[in-house]
Nucleic acid binder design. Structure first.
Length: 473
RNA sequence: GCUCCCAUCGUCUAGAGGCCCAGGACACAGCCCUCUCAAGGCUGGUACGAGGGUUCGAAUCCCUCUGGGAGCGCCA
């Protein structure tokens, strides 16, 4: 590995669906590792047993793989720093906890949630920052034992050192400085014995050899706690980079509740993974290239130094732009696979591939193809109001001519339309629009010639007759 | 309330004192091309949150304010 190689990670918590903000953090971490010749670790933060679900985890991993993000270490692939699920790393945390305790840097806390909430309220009301009041910080060993004997299960708090200045250089925001006196003693082990985010996350990043932690801006103010913890433990400190948040179009932060921007939903709508990556690499990052980037080109256009410091809004119009690009950059075979079951009414093989070639330029999402499939396979199609107007304008005789000229020009669209032009005196839009309207029921769509070829003469004739009837009324 | 982060077109961004009466992309409008839509080509409008400094010169540096966000959880 190059000396500048970065070891990065993504550490999702399987308590919900991955949204675009998560996806961007994952993508940037992955790209930072790839661009530097380093590697990328995936770790599962499932310490909250009550909210973590295996099904959710599988979905997250699946969405990540679908996006094209692959991990060098983590669930399913193993690696030297496993296990990669925090729920299986209990002994590692126990060791860290023991070390902190031996150093006198922890103490058990018996305060109830109600007491803590009240305390916070009181402090807030008197204009002070709500910090833990160290109620249990001075409990004697006898006291502690007595409470435990009477059945109380304490949480463990980290004793934050007084009057310390914690400094670090954020890879995105630059030099940071915090005062330890602004930080209350925080819980590192819950009463149920599970380890808190602050401890588990920091210990794992360090123990797994992560050199750069890229995460959301919302963790910036958490970083000094973790630095203090790691320092007390004598463990190596990773560098940190805090990515600005991704906001919903409304300007509010993207939350797990806003399903619209979840990877799973985007995928279900038919968005292509490459489209999402092309969008994401330009969201809060100046990639310096306006054109389409294939997945293997992404890393060479990624530069941590080009990352924005301010939050970015999710704009579906831009995602759609990249979706269009993704469709045009896909091969016909890929499109056929993407369209999947929407093509069932068509014969596999030649008919499907011909159809794909014809409609490719007109489709953004698989569901849009249904109508077009109907045009090709159904006997009748719904006729839009615009199309009906076109048909009426042309009049019944137009369709009589078109129908009678079809037999002599079967399979020759150009010859057929020329013959209609000669017979009716119509050309250009006045010729093609009524024809398109009669044949497809719509005033717009893919190129007419190949579409007609796909329809077959019988269907064409039937639709001409119906148009004739429609125009006659 | 305290601490911290952030602030350029509608959106994503370029811009690290003069190259900027601010450039690109998406979106929007008009035109061209075209049987239509899409694509493509051309044209157009729209932005440095406010106020003070510093400087010959500020979108760029400093301060204040305003606005947005985060953290201060036995959530992560």
């Amino acid at each position: 590995m190059p000396a500048t190689a970065l070891i990065t990670r993504f550490a999702p918590s399987p308590t919900g669906a991955l949204h675009l903000g998560n996806a961007r953090t994952a993508l940037f971490s992955w790209l930072a590792a790839r661009a530097s010749g380093g590697h990328f670790v995936l770790r599962v933060e499932d310490t909250d047993a009550g909210r973590s679900q295996d099904a959710l985890l599988e979905r997250q991993l699946d969405d990540l793989r679908w996006l094209g993000i692959t991990w060098d270490e983590g669930p399913g692939v193993g690696g030297p720093h496993g296990p990669y699920r925090q729920s299986e790393r209990g002994s590692i945390y126990a060791e860290a906890l023991a070390k902190l305790e031996a150093g006198g840097q922890t103490y058990p806390c018996f305060c109830s949630p109600e007491e803590l909430q009240l305390s916070r309220k009181v402090q807030l009301a008197s204009g002070r920052p709500p910090r833990y009041a160290r109620t249990c910080a001075g409990l004697s060993a006898v006291d502690v034992q007595r409470r435990i004997d009477s059945g109380a299960a304490p949480a463990i708090r980290f004793r934050v050192p007084d009057h310390r200045t914690v400094e670090f250089v954020d890879r995105i925001h630059g030099p940071q400085r915090f005062q330890s006196d602004d930080i209350g003693d925080f819980v590192i082990r819950r009463a149920d014995g599970s380890v808190s985010f602050f401890l588990g996350n920091a210990v794992d990043d360090s123990a797994m050899g992560i050199t750069l932690v890229l995460r959301g801006d919302d963790h910036l103010a958490n970083t000094p706690r973790q630095l203090l913890l790691l320092e007390a433990l004598g463990m190596p400190l990773p560098e940190y980079g805090h990515l600005p948040l991704v906001l919903a179009p409304s300007g509010t932060p993207l939350s797990k509740r806003e399903g619209a921007a979840s990877l799973t939903d985007l995928r279900a709508q038919g968005y292509l993974p490459d489209a999402i990556c092309n969008y994401l690499i330009r969201l809060g990052h100046a990639c310096g290239h306006d054109g389409w980037l294939a997945m293997d080109q992404l890393a060479s256009h990624f530069d941590l130094a080009r990352t924005s410091h301010s939050a970015a809004r999710f704009d579906e119009a831009q995602l759609r732009h990249w979706q269009r690009e993704a469709v045009t950059h896909s091969t016909d075979a890929q499109i056929e696979q993407w369209l999947g079951g929407h093509l069932d009414a068509l014969q596999a093989g030649e008919e499907r591939s011909a159809f794909v070639a014809v409609v490719k330029g007109n489709v953004l999402f698989p569901a849009e193809v249904d109508e077009l499939v109907g045009v090709v396979v159904h006997d009748s199609v719904p006729v839009s109001a615009d199309a009906k107007a076109q048909i009426t304008e042309a009049g019944p005789d137009f369709f009589v001519s078109a129908g009678s000229l079809l037999a002599t020009n079967a399979g020759d669209f150009k010859g057929w339309t020329r013959a209609i032009a000669d017979a009716t005196g119509r050309k250009g839009a006045r010729l093609f629009m009524p024809l398109r309207s009669a044949l497809t029921g719509a005033t717009h769509g893919p190129e007419l010639a190949p579409l007609v070829g796909l329809m077959g003469n019988a269907r064409v004739l039937g639709r001409l007759e119906r148009a004739q009837a429609l125009a006659g009324k």
